[in-house]
Structures are given as C-alpha cells and as structure tokens.
Design a protein around this nucleic acid. Structure first.
Lengths: 165, 165
DNA sequence: CTCGATGCAAATGCTTTGCAGAAAA
DNA sequence: TTTTCTGCAAAGCATTTGCATCGAG
C-alpha cells in the first residue's frame, strides 16, 4: 500500500515511480496531443512533464516549480500552471483539492483509481481502490440516468497513530 | 428526489425547506454555542443564519449576501464569511467545493448525508445516500486503522438530458 | 518567417484581516 | 463600561492574463 505524508511543506511518498518505458509512453502521448492540436514541444514543457511523470505523489505547482528550477532556474509559475493545464486537457493529469486552497496534481494512469483516506491530524494519505464501491457508484448513477465520467471520493478521519481512543 | 441546477449564476432547488420548529432548533443550537464561547448574538448573525437555515441548496457567499441584503442592505461580505465560518465551527454548516473556485455551504443536519451526483454539462446536482457504500467506507477505513469523521463523495458525469448516446 | 510559448508583472477572484466606530452584555 | 462585532477597505493567496520577446516548426 502506498502512503504519503502531506503536511504543509513536506511531501513524501513511498514510491510508485514509473519505469522508463511508461514515462516514455506518457511523453509520446503528450507529443501526439500537442502535434494534433498545433501546440509546440518546448524544452520547458518537456522538463515540467518529465518532472511530473517521474513524481510519486500529489504535487502542488510549487513542488513542481521547485523541482524543475533545479534544472532550469528561469522557469516561471505561469509556465508550470499552463503546462499542468495542458496535461489535464490531454488526460495525463488529475487535479485534486484537499481542503487547503492548493491544487495538487497526480499522473493519470488509465487503469488506476486514486481514492483517498486522509488523516485530519497528521495529514497522512492512503490511496485506495474498491471495486465494490465503484460498482455501487455506477449502479447508483445509472439509476439516475447518469453516465459517470469521474469521481471524487475522500475519506477524512484519524489514522491509527493519531487516534486517542 | 431533490434536484438542483447550479450553472454559474442560477441556483434552484426543488425544496427541502425546513419547518419552523427545525429552524428554531438550529437557531437555539447556534445561540447556545455562542453563549458558551463568549460570542455575541447580533442582528447580522441572526439574519445570515436565518437565511442560511431557510435555504434549500448549495449556497455561495454571494447567494447568501444577496439574500440578506434584501433585508439589510448594509451587510458586508466579511460578515457573511465570518458568520459562515462560525456556523461551520459549531457544526451547523458544511462547506463544499465543486471544481469552480467558489465555496458553497449547506445546512448540516445530523441525520443526513449529502453525497452528490453532478452533471458535467448542465450542472444538475442530485443528492444521494447509499448505506452500502457508507458501510464499505467504514470497513475500508477500519482496515487501515482509521476512524472516519467525514467524507466527500462526488460522482461526475452526464445526466439523462445531456447524454448524446 | 510565423505563430505559439515563455517569463515577467500586473490583474483577477475569492477569502481574510486590520482598524475605527457601533453595539452587545 | 468592556469586549466583541461590523463594515469598509486593504491585504493575502492561488491562479490567470497581457504583452514584449523568444524560439519551434
């Protein structure tokens, strides 16, 4: 089970690093999307998307900016925002909001669901996937005539370390 | 089934108006909370909370401000924000974020769950409650050592009217 | 060359805060 | 009278945008 600490500044994850082949495939998808839409492949876009694809957790724009600036110190906020918007648009990134006013992003792999169990005290995030719940969601949506495209499912509580009972 | 349209400016709901007794009880809870915490019962707070308790949907600060200004045109944004914060703090309001950058609030009734099925095209919101899902959530949380306090469960898709298939 | 992308700074939109006057207790 | 609250305007943040310049195609 992957876990991750998110407490203000610190973000650690225990690794879901994608292998080179997968990262290459993601870059390809991005390139294809840009080409099809008359967008240009720039060093900044490649750098930001590389940092993003290689990342392991729920990154904020700041996290990402800090990472890419190690490589190219002149990259600005706007570029990172614009690149992440591009990645969202071509379906390679999910945008998440966990209460604080900050957008966090994570790589969108087709075959993965990322629902979250979040500790309200220490900020630990446990990702989960539950087929039964997914099925119930679909049923419920169908009952109301909806076709589901995506969902947000976040459980907030206290983790084992933070419970006092 | 309650439904509601949320599309930028327009917000309509088909009625979950609380009866006077319930509204009175909510006011009482608020008064008690304020007294216990050395806070004061002002005409503005009574007005904002009344408008809020009588509301039927997912109101933004603007919605609420517009409503209370019909009664008292001098009420300012800050007061509404501060009052809603107070209502959240004493457990009478839930704060929600549906993608757009706006906070929406709804009355927190103890015995109700408000999960949401949201049409990505027309913005229709259907509220739902599903005990099986609730149970699975609890089980899942317990398996990870968590005690759940609250959750966010939003299903996004296309409603019957907006589907093209 | 052309047109999209970048970086900067200014602008925006929502929310919070500081402060002097107003009003509960 | 004392302390909190209000309304206003200013400040804060995260995010977006305008524009001159840069660079991919």
């Amino acid at each position: 089970m992957r876990e991750e600490i998110v407490d203000g500044e610190l973000h650690e994850a225990d690794g879901r690093e994608l292998d080179d082949a997968t990262v290459a495939e993601l870059h390809e998808r991005l390139e294809k999307y840009m080409e099809k839409n008359g967008l240009r492949s720039t060093s900044q876009r490649r750098l930001v998307s590389e940092a993003f694809f290689r990342s392991t957790g729920h990154l904020s724009i700041e996290d990402l900016l800090a990472t890419v600036r190690e490589e190219d110190s002149k990259i600005g906020y706007a570029t990172v925002y614009r690149t992440l918007k591009l990645l969202k648009d071509c379906g390679l990134a999910y945008e998440r909001h966990f209460g604080d006013g900050v957008s966090r992003y994570e790589v969108a792999l087709e075959d993965e669901h990322h629902d979250h169990l979040i500790c309200m005290s220490c900020g630990k995030i446990v990702e989960f996937e539950n087929d039964e719940i997914e099925q119930l969601q679909d049923d419920l949506a169908a009952k109301h005539g909806f076709v589901l495209k995506r969902h947000v499912h976040e459980l907030y509580g206290l983790c084992g370390d933070c419970r006092t009972d």
